[in-house]
């Protein structure tokens, strides 16, 4: 990394993103997969309508006609697995992006070593003690079953994690010599947060956000499983797994395995991006 810095001194900032991608095959691979999957869910011609059941072909095993088989209602599992990305991936990304922004703002706000911020963190402890099921049920009871409540659930789960991460990083940074130098220059607390602390926590925060996106897919699946968020007949990996799980008893494994595999590879793709971003952040330090 340092060698390129030497050969093109002035262009360090502008070339940062492509350089990260160029040097990190995993990031490219992960992003490409996510984009392709999302594009396919919207534009690819599917063999069957994802919300139109075929009552004459229920519980068919995978075949040339139905690649991933059909479920108990006669829905084509392949079409639904692809189409589910339409909702699952944007929901996960929206939830993660909102968590990222709110987490950065609140994380920086509590990143002082004051009694006030200690209390805020203690408050988060209490909040985080509630499991997802309880939070999901509470949100739906309070706001009704809408897609937005899924985003809200993701935000409520992820913001405390971002806050903790940013706070612990920022507290360590505050002890560093260059922050003291900035104070000696007369930099205001806001300038110190914005110019000195934020850029130095961004790397690890971005990496955490990819992990959060992966986690969100699981949250959406879990919430759908509980009947929150995406409602039938709209396809969602979580719902498909829920229905498929029931059919496992009679041996219809394909209904649950293929959407489960879709969750697996999507999470893996987000993790690839996360690992790559983390590595890039470390290398440039």
């Amino acid at each position: 990394m340092s060698e390129r810095v030497l050969t093109q001194p002035g262009r360090r900032r502008s070339s940062a993103m492509p350089a990260i991608v160029r040097e990190n095959a995993p990031v490219v691979l992960g992003l490409a997969f996510i984009v392709l999957f999302l594009a396919a869910s919207f534009f690819a011609p599917l063999p069957y309508g994802p919300t139109t059941p075929d009552p004459l072909a229920t519980s068919q095993p995978p075949s040339a006609l139905h690649w991933f088989g059909t479920d108990a209602n006669g829905f084509d599992v392949f079409s639904r697995t692809i189409a589910a990305a339409q909702r699952d991936i944007p929901l996960a990304l929206a939830g993660t992006l909102a968590s990222l922004v709110l987490g950065i703002v609140f994380g920086l706000l509590v990143s002082t070593k004051s009694r006030w911020s200690e209390r805020a963190i203690r408050g988060l402890d209490v909040f985080q003690a509630f499991p997802l099921v309880i939070i999901g049920t509470a949100i739906v009871t309070l706001t009704g079953n809408r897609l937005e409540s899924v985003v809200l659930a993701i935000v409520l789960l992820n913001v405390p994690r971002f806050m903790r991460l940013i706070r612990s990083e920022a507290l360590a940074l505050r002890e560093s010599r260059f922050i003291e130098a900035a104070r000696a220059l007369g930099a205001s607390p806001l300038r110190i947060l914005w110019r000195h602390i934020l850029p130095n926590v961004m790397g690890i925060t971005l990496a955490q956000s990819s992990i959060a996106a992966a986690h969100s897919i699981i949250v959406i699946a879990a919430l759908s499983f509980l009947g929150v968020g995406v409602s039938p007949p709209d396809p969602s990996w979580g719902l498909m797994i829920q229905e498929g799980a029931r059919q496992m008893i009679v041996g219809d494994w394909w209904i649950v395995v293929f959407p489960g595999f879709a969750v697996l590879v999507t999470v893996a793709a987000f993790n690839l991006v996360a690992d790559g971003l983390q590595a890039a952040a470390d290398a440039s330090q």
Binding site: R177, F178, E180, A181, A184, G186, H196, P199, N200, Q285
Partner: peptide
């Protein structure tokens, strides 16, 4: 803050006293 323009400091550890992201 205004006075700080006229009194300054140079630290012991040069690398640690410079923001690595700037």
């Amino acid at each position: 803050r205004r006075l700080r323009a006229t009194m300054q400091v140079v630290f012991q550890e040069p690398y640690e006293s410079l923001n690595p992201r700037m």
